[in-house]
């Protein structure tokens, strides 16, 4: 087909379009997270000593770190919906959060005696934590991923990975409402592991599903 003819044809079948909206993608993710969140809070409930636990500054990081990851990674993923979008400062900021998490681990490894370390690391709820966290992240991730497909990311794997990190971070933040484990060694390892797994899954999905 001649290019002029292609242009004529495209112009002839070009109805008005609605611009993509990051807000709608976020809304879809939040709505998709509601059922799992309701199950978590309904069946397991908020930990009874939540307020007392959050009075300890280090313990608040259990919510602050994943929430910051969710905001930074989610914001970057939304920016990357546009072809000219950039990750921007979210990249170094996420790296900074990773360093904070690493510092927490080093601190605990130094402070604890050798026999205490495995106990702190495994806590009493390790497998449950990983499983529930990934379960909480799945719905929002799928909804957000579906929304991102309407965009045009020129870096599909990165965009999917950021969406995965964001879903994992949001899930960890909410799971912390219930989770009784407060040792940074526990939450950096298990929350961080779940968030990274979620990000990795998002990357694989993005490399395939966000191409156009």
């Amino acid at each position: 087909m001649k290019t002029e003819d292609l242009i004529t044809r495209l112009a002839a079948e070009a109805p008005a379009t609605a611009p993509i909206s990051g807000g709608r993608v976020v809304m879809a993710g939040l709505l998709a997270g509601l059922p799992a969140l309701a199950l978590l809070l309904g069946l397991l409930g908020v930990r009874p000593d939540f307020m007392a636990a959050m009075a300890v500054p280090v313990t608040t990081l259990k919510m602050v770190l994943p929430a910051a990851i969710a905001l930074l990674a989610g914001g970057a993923a939304l920016r990357l919906m546009r072809p000219e979008g950039r990750v921007g400062l979210a990249g170094p900021a996420l790296a900074g959060l990773a360093l904070v998490a690493l510092a927490l681990v080093v601190w605990r490894l130094v402070a604890l005696s050798a026999p205490q370390i495995p106990v702190a690391l495994m806590g009493r709820t390790a497998p449950q934590c990983l499983f529930l966290l990934l379960g909480l992240a799945t719905g929002p991730f799928l909804a957000v991923f579906w929304g991102l497909r309407a965009g045009a990311s020129t870096r599909p794997a990165l965009t999917g990975g950021l969406a995965g990190l964001a879903a994992g971070g949001a899930a960890a933040t909410l799971y912390a409402l219930h989770c009784p484990e407060d040792d940074p060694l526990f939450f950096v390892f298990w929350y961080g592991g779940a968030i990274l797994l979620s990000g990795l899954a998002g990357m694989v999905a993005g490399a395939r599903g966000l191409r156009w």
Partner: peptide, 20 residues
């Protein structure tokens, strides 16, 4: 020219990703 047309088609399919 095929590549040019592919780009035009992509512009068409993704024109809603431009922020006005």
């Amino acid at each position: 020219e095929d590549v040019v047309q592919e780009v035009l088609l992509a512009i068409h399919l993704k024109r809603h990703t431009w922020q006005s």
